[in-house]
Design a protein around this nucleic acid. Structure first.
Lengths: 331, 331
DNA sequence: TTGTAGGCGTTATCAT
DNA sequence: ATGATAACGCCTACAA
């Protein structure tokens, strides 16, 4: 049996309340002398507090939960780093739960776990929650925020990049560099993110009076393989002069496949990615990207949850920027 | 206030015990008719169980904790995937805690959290725990296992690859392909992993009667930057014909820097990596590697913790293999 | 400044 | 098959 607050109290010849107060540092509610004594006894006995019991009694936990898709898009790390950055400063614990991807069962399980443990807040990262999960989360009353998934009105507060702007800026950049036939790879009209990016693309093209051949749009997801497959779709003599890929990994898939076709990037084909994670810098050619500030998204999301005030959390977009590297060229 | 088991009992006109039994599926201890009724009432009321209270009362949690270094080596994902694979099959929840890297404060905090929550088991991934953390973990009596960090005898049970063998096999592969002057990049004699790999290297060299110039050994860590820096150390006319890098990322750093020097890989320099994650397949040239089976390490580690028997966990090495790709060549 | 006692939501033990 | 009731370990009025 583990040593409890009671054991400590006994050994220190004080009451449990005193021990409790000392150990949870309720300043000004005990004499520093007794405090020292109690702390020593506790240490000697190897006392470890039971967080469950404490949370149960006090109705407040100090853990933030991050629910994240298992997707192999690599930006999650940066978001998590941002979350930790502010969480540790506030003395909060962070626990991460994987929810698979587009796997309602796993999502439900993760959300359920989170609710059952009555965490103080939930950060949902890069995940479009199913209705059921979303509902239980809402009715639970636990503060939560979506990160990197701006979404339909009623979803809840989010911090993300503006996916419409992402699609628009990428397209605009390429147009300004002389491209007229621009492919879009990996976007998925079904997902909110994908649809928004496509809209941005369409808007930029229209604004410059460029028409779109629907054959330039190759749907998919965020993976390397989606990039490869899309490039295979375009073939050895692509109808486009530039391609926007839905993630860094997807861009790499495109480039690798292009190279296998004997096409040089960017000499014969410009490729641009969305995300701008470290991959874009270590891969050769380095990859021009629409860069999102994932670290700040993590920080901001965590901060939003941690500001004590009970005001509803404000959704917001964080700035994006186009970073020019070596995978695109002026036509 | 959340709806509790008590509310359900009242609404359903039964006792709390009955509700508890039904809701936790203690088969054969209730009539299926009442069960249906209770379940319906619970659902109607939007009841959510409080895991803390349950764990507190029953003295058993169903959560496994993964304590992981924040290191940007990318194999962690695969280990975590493996862990989840078996955890979900057993119906266990998994929570992940980051512990920074070589950051005793964060480590302590993570371990403390884990102990306070009295999880059913702890998986420590790619982390060499400080003495203090290690001790509290040990005295807590919580089952734990080290993954991907085989270590000094008394550390505790582990599942990992044999780092000595890794160093040995990589070196042997290169020697058999005609290399005599082989560089070692990113190993750190202070860390157990690094030391083991270096020993393997030394043994393979000795076995083939090859002498080592200590200048070929460039210490470091697992990062991309370590690879770049090491290659800068070797310069434009490297004294070695092949380099073994401590991680895939480090290998990429080496290759990128070599390319910046105008050196072609593998024509003028062979580069081999340790890990064999997906990076080795998407990068060009694809990278020859000593491949570890991280997914299986995760699976095996989780399984070891979950087998109910109280026998001490057996440490073991999982097989590694050399996978030939395009970053090395026969001399 | 310290102690007493009740309660947090659940499970477990013992009756019935 | 079901119901009381006592834990579980801690926190927090309230009293002293």
């Amino acid at each position: 049996m583990r040593v409890t607050i009671k054991d400590v109290a006994q050994a220190a010849n004080v009451s449990v309340s005193t021990v409790s107060r000392v150990l949870s540092n309720k300043e000004n509610f005990f004499a520093s002398k007794t405090a020292d004594h109690v702390r020593k006894v506790a240490a000697d006995l190897g006392y470890q507090r039971n967080a469950y019991a404490a949370d149960l009694a006090s109705h407040q936990s100090d853990v933030l939960a991050v629910v994240i898709s298992a997707t192999k898009s690599n930006f999650a790390d940066e978001i998590i780093a941002g979350i930790h950055d502010v969480a540790t400063k506030h003395g909060n614990s962070v626990m991460i739960l994987y929810a698979g991807e587009n796997n309602p069962t796993l999502q439900d399980k993760a959300i359920k776990t989170v609710i059952e443990r009555d965490v103080m807040g939930v950060l949902i990262v890069a995940l479009e929650l199913g209705d059921e999960s979303l509902n239980s989360l809402k009715t639970s009353g636990i503060p939560h925020i979506f990160l990197s998934t701006a979404a339909k009105e009623n979803l809840g507060p989010f911090i993300a990049s503006d996916d419409h702007a992402i699609g628009y800026e990428a397209t605009k950049y390429l147009i300004e560099h002389g491209h007229r036939k621009i492919g879009l790879v990996g976007m998925d009209e079904q997902s909110f993110v994908g649809a928004q990016r496509m809209n941005g693309y369409r808007e930029a093209m229209a604004k410059h009076s460029l028409s779109i051949d629907e054959d330039w749009l190759v749907p998919g997801y965020f993976t390397f393989e989606d990039g490869e497959a899309a490039m295979q779709h375009f073939g050895k003599q692509p109808a486009v002069t530039a391609i926007i890929a839905n993630s860094d990994l997807t861009a790499i898939g495109v480039i690798d496949q292009a190279r296998d076709y004997g096409l040089e990037v960017p000499a014969q084909l410009s490729v641009m990615s969305i995300d701008g994670t470290k991959l874009t810098r270590i891969f050769r050619p380095t990859i021009t990207s629409v860069t999102q500030d994932f670290f700040q998204i993590g920080r901001a999301g965590c901060a939003a949850l941690l500001t004590g005030d009970n005001e509803p959390i404000q959704s917001k977009f964080l700035p994006i920027k186009v970073v020019e590297r070596n995978s695109t060229r002026q036509l």
